[in-house]
Amino acid sequence: MQYQPMVFRTCMGFLHHKDDADDLTQDVFIQAYQTLSAFKGDASFSTWIYRIAVNASLNKIRKSSKNQFLQRLETAFGGEKSKEHSISISDNENPENILILNEHKEWVQKALNSLPENQRTAIVLSKYDDLPQKEIAEIMNTTEGAVEALIQRAKANLREKLSSLNKKSKK
């Protein structure tokens, strides 16, 4: 299970929630086991498993965005609002700092979630898994140049989104 931490980190980068990332990591390994015969060895095993993790994460996000839409509809028609996941960065922080950090964390998660899928994949694999651009290119089945451009665009979009969220909070 040497690949477990890296799959978990990838899932965490996409989902930002520990329990969801745990569940998805489990699904990824079971899916990998089921489709092991499809692994031909053209790419390295880690690249193959990263691809499964990225695809599973993106599918999960697509599904949950549909569910969120239904939940919003349900809430609009008088249903119960689903509980938000609590966020904590460190237990040593005082409550005020935790509150600020949680707010900041929400900004970053919102900004990350607003990125297009390919930019998001590139930034998650680069920032969460510290993968070199060559490996990211293999996972995403593209060129290194394209990956570099994607990461640059993702960073610019993140900066822009965070800046607008910061301005909104100041108003």
């Binding site: 299970m1 477990q4 931490p5 978990f8 980190r9 965490m12 980068g13 930002h16 520990k18 990332a21 745990d22 990591t25 489990q26 390994f29 079971i30 086991y33 960065i89 460190s90 900041h104 964390k105 900004w107 970053v108 998660q109 900004a111 920032k127 969460y128 960073k155 993140l158 900066r159 965070l162 800046s163 910061n166």
Partner: peptide, 29 residues
């Protein structure tokens, strides 16, 4: 803002998975 984003991403990166995850995966298989 960029430092903040890096801080949040680093915090998420440092999170550890459930220690029983391996057992769960094996049970699933």
């Amino acid at each position: 803002l960029v430092s903040l984003a890096n801080k949040v991403m680093d915090a998420e990166k440092e999170m550890k998975s459930n220690p029983f995850l391996v057992t769960r995966i094996m049970a699933g298989i």
